[in-house]
């Protein structure tokens, strides 16, 4: 009895139908596995309460000329720098050809508030916090792997690939900003 079943399925059309069932069942199992795994993987994405901490407000009048204030936003440091006229002049005068990640100074500030620079304070290399006012370009210097940023927070020298990131922010009034 059993022998005859084996021979029947071993030849002709029945074999391909059985193959089809095997492949279909295998594919269904893989699909079901992926569907079960997805909620587990997705649960590792930022939770609702983490995302809810998305914006803060800051009073710019707290920062003096030539000074930098560091605030914490989404667990990261944010640099708020009140630039001196000389620092602004240096940033504006730099030709785009001298930049690794070309961006004009005007693209990195809000019109009418060019003295204030608002940047995420993590080096775009591996995330250390660059030191204020240090380095060859008067902006920031990252002590971890030696990246130099200019007074517009643009990468000028070292391993970092990008300029310091400008977060999304807007002026609510002349002296008040909302980050995020």
């Amino acid at each position: 009895m059993a022998e005859s079943v084996v021979t029947e399925n071993g030849t002709g059309g029945d074999a391909s139908r059985r193959d089809f069932i095997h492949i279909a069942a295998g594919a269904a199992a893989v699909g079901a596995g992926a569907m079960l795994a997805w909620p587990l993987i997705n649960s590792m994405n930022p939770a609702a309460d983490t995302l809810a901490l998305a914006s803060i407000e800051f009073d710019m009048s707290k920062v003096q000329e030539g000074q930098q204030v560091v605030i914490k936003w989404q667990g990261k440091p944010v640099f708020v720098r009140y630039r001196t006229p000389r620092e602004i002049q240096e940033a504006v005068a730099t030709p785009l050809s001298a930049l690794k990640d070309p961006q004009t100074d005007a693209d990195r500030i809000k019109a009418g508030h060019q003295q204030y620079l608002v940047l995420i304070g993590n080096c775009t290399h591996l995330g250390c916090i660059p030191t204020f006012g240090a380095g060859d370009f008067g902006g920031w210097f990252c002590p971890c792997h030696g990246s130099h940023y200019d007074t517009s927070g643009r990468i000028r020298k070292g391993p970092a690939p990008k300029n310091l990131v400008v977060p999304e922010y807007d002026y609510l009034s002349d002296t008040r900003i909302k980050i995020g």
Partner: peptide, 11 residues
Amino acid sequence: WLRGGPAIDNA
């Protein structure tokens, strides 16, 4: 995804 948020934190 790996950090579970925008920065290294409790997650």
